[in-house]
Design a protein around this nucleic acid. Structure first.
Length: 696
DNA sequence: AGTAAAAGGTTTTTT
DNA sequence: ACCTTTTACT
């Protein structure tokens, strides 16, 4: 599912362009690789060749977009290289490599060795904490929410733009609060430093900082070869890092496709590809255009979609992929009545394909947003079709899981105020006031004090820690559990991470029963986490790995018991990047979803939405089905039945000739584009006439 | 004063 | 489904 090795064409020798990309070694290299043109294969072949020619694997850095693709590529390098050390290639995401380097060189940047990494939701929680502490919520009406603040901050930092510009361009309704936002950002940054925590952006910023420090020479000498996958989705900071890691003799090779850039919302910019040859003098470009993945009918449709101008221009290289597989069915376009009809049709097609010998593993359902598959998931469950879902909500972000992780994080880094906040505020009878007092008594956030020790002893700097009566049972249980989990400097006596989770379980049980209305289901999630924890021997390592590479799949998390050997993939389009399946179904291709109505009116946003559709379509090898229901609920949260009628994605219209329209019968009786009639009149006139008879 | 329960508002995509 | 604010209760 993840590679092309089962494709006989792709498994054969490299084509001339691919071979040239593998062989080139005299200057920086940019490989412009269209969808399905074998870029992974080319990268792997290049690394294999380097190692087999004697390059030390430890001096090869392979930066990828996800950890999964890094480990898969290294796996393939190992399988194809004659060197036993081939697996020692440095591979991972920018963030995971940053973590690795900062653990090693971070002291030079003023970082403590045991720093904690905040994921996006942790960062949001920290903003919420600062926001509350400073009282902005009460002082000014309509002060931006924590989510919005985090979003503004992210735009600002990862795009390296000034606050004023970001507010003006993307958050005009928050512009009035600029001054208070500055205070929030200042406190947020100070708090991170005091608590020895880094957020995702910090990992990149500190790494870049090191490349501009006195360590520059040492870092530039770490690697002989740097290879970067998915270069179109890197941001300006990442491009700086790449440049900073290149010493005088480092060979650089970047691979990307400007037509598949879909992370603009994270400040990724294809300018990094456009500028490559300017920034890295002497660089040459090699383009891969032969597609080994899809049939011509699918490529024709995808090319036609991509070709349409957005706001009068075509914002990517004009590129025409061609395939050596000319024949196959045209992509199908299903118009149906509502989501239920769509789910039924897709499930029917999937089962039908399986009857025809296409395993579920060779089929995938893609969609724009995580919740778009909710209806289908019900239908699949009803029909006993096993599936795993990529993207969307992550288990790690569920409140109760974060409760448990906060306990582990306190043990790992007692200075972590955010984790303490989560633990203390969850206790029975503890509100903001008591939490503040407990924090002071325990010495949380004060230098050179270990609040964990104080908590276990029940004794703070200024005497006893006063626990509210209601919290007493919970606190007693937690004290005993934490006492058992603290290593106390004696590594060999320490419980394993999984054992620590089990030791904390009784406390969690009390907590969940008190806090949530479905404690049993939530407790089961904690047991799944204990399962996952079995593979780790170090607690801190487990915490950082879970943060940098959260289990993105239901299957990774719990290993659903009903899963047999064959299962269907559901995935957001973003999470499907780089993957391929024989049959692909794209759900909810209605205007407002693709393009997302939030992007409408924004030129760059619209261009990105178009590329998103292109990415989705080019995942299909043999058959592609795009569907859109006409009827949508007004809002995703409401439980009412209010609905609106949607239209087909505007991006598909110009390419309609490349699709075969299909119907599932749910539309047969009603043509919604025609006004319904009564006698010779349409319904509205009929009603108005009747009403008029009541008073005339 | 301080906490707990209830009501009100939300906009996607992810390292 | 979750986060914030408002209100009710001790």
């Amino acid at each position: 599912m993840f590679d092309s090795t089962d494709n006989p064409l792709a498994a054969s020798a490299l084509n001339p362009a691919q071979q040239a990309a593998v062989d080139h070694h005299t200057s920086p290299l940019l490989i412009v690789a269209g969808a399905g043109t074998g870029k992974t294969k080319t990268l792997v072949a290049r690394v294999v060749r380097l190692i087999d020619e004697g390059v030390d694997p430890n001096r090869v850095l392979l930066l990828t977009f996800t950890r999964r693709s890094a480990s898969e590529m290294i796996q393939r390098v190992r399988a194809n290289s004659s060197s036993r050390a081939a697996g020692q290639v440095w591979g991972g995401t920018f963030h995971s490599i940053a973590n690795r380097l900062l653990r090693q060189f971070g002291a030079a940047a003023g970082l403590p060795a045991n720093f904690t990494v905040l994921d996006a939701s942790d960062a949001t929680d920290l903003f919420a904490m600062v926001r509350t502490e400073e009282g902005f919520g009460e002082r000014s009406k309509r002060f931006p929410r924590a989510n919005t603040i985090a979003s503004i901050y992210g735009h600002m930092v990862s795009g390296q733009a000034r606050l004023d510009e970001v507010l003006e361009k993307d958050f005009p309704w928050c512009a009035d609060h600029a001054d208070d936002l500055k205070k929030v950002f200042t406190t947020y940054t100070a708090r991170k430093r005091e608590n020895a925590v880094l957020d995702y952006d910090d990992l990149l910023l500190f790494w870049r900082g090191l490349t501009k420090s006195s360590l520059q020479g040492a870092l530039g000498d770490l690697f002989d070869h740097i290879l970067i996958d998915e270069y179109q989705d890197t941001n300006p900071i990442q491009a700086d890092i790449v440049e900073g890691m290149c010493g005088p003799t480092t060979q650089l090779c970047a691979v990307g496709d400007d037509a598949q850039a879909i992370y603009g919302f994270r400040s990724a910019t294809v300018a990094n590809m456009w500028n490559f040859t300017d920034r890295f003098p002497g660089a040459i470009t090699i383009t891969l255009e032969q597609n080994y993945r899809s049939t011509m009918p699918i490529l024709r449709a995808a090319n036609a979609v991509l070709r349409q101008p957005i706001g009068g221009e075509t914002p990517h290289f004009a590129k025409e992929l061609w395939s050596s597989t000319p024949l196959g069915p045209m992509p199908r376009l299903l118009t149906c009545h509502d989501e239920t009809a769509q789910s039924a049709w897709v499930a029917d097609q999937i089962l039908d394909s399986r009857e025809r010998g296409i395993d579920l593993r060779e089929q995938a359902v893609l969609f724009r947003a995580g919740h778009h598959s909710n209806g289908l998931e019900l239908e699949l469950t009803r029909r006993d079709i096993p599936f795993v879902k990529y993207g969307g909500l992550k288990h790690l972000e569920a409140a109760h899981v974060k409760d448990l992780l906060a306990l582990l994080r306190i043990l790992d880094n007692p200075a972590d105020q955010l984790a303490w906040h989560r633990v203390l505020s969850g206790l029975e009878g503890v509100g903001p006031a008591t939490e503040r007092r407990l924090g002071a008594e325990l010495g949380i956030g004060q230098p050179d004090i270990d609040p964990v020790r104080n908590f276990i002893a029940g004794r703070g700097a200024d005497g006893t820690v006063r626990v509210p009566t209601a919290a007493k049972p919970q606190v007693d249980e937690l004290r005993a559990a934490m006492a058992d989990c603290v290593a106390d400097g004696n590594e060999s006596a320490a419980l394993s991470p999984a054992a620590q989770i089990n030791r904390l379980r009784p406390f969690c049980e009390m907590l969940l029963a008190n806090k949530y209305d479905n404690p049993a289901a939530r407790l089961a999630d904690l047991d799944s986490l204990a399962n996952t924890a079995e593979q780790y021997r170090s607690r801190s390592r487990m915490l950082v790995e879970l943060t940098l590479d959260p289990p993105g799949v239901t299957g990774d998390w719990a290993g659903p018991p009903h899963l047999d050997d064959d299962w269907l993939t559901l995935s957001t389009i973003h999470s499907a990047k780089g993957l391929e399946w024989r049959h692909v179904y794209l759900l909810h291709a209605a205007d407002g979803n693709i393009p997302s109505d939030m992007a409408i009116g924004d030129h760059d946003g619209m261009a990105e939405e178009l590329r998103l559709l292109y990415v989705a379509m080019t995942r299909a090898k043999e058959e592609l089905s795009i569907s859109f229901p006409l009827r949508y609920h007004v809002n995703r949260f409401g439980s009412d039945d209010r609905h609106v009628y949607a239209q087909m994605s505007r991006f598909i219209e110009p390419a309609l000739e490349h699709f075969e329209p299909v119907s599932d019968g749910s539309m047969a009786e009603i043509d919604l584009r025609q006004p319904a009639g009564v006698g010779q009149q349409n319904v509205a006139d009929h009603v108005d006439d009747m009403l008029a008879t009541l008073w005339t």
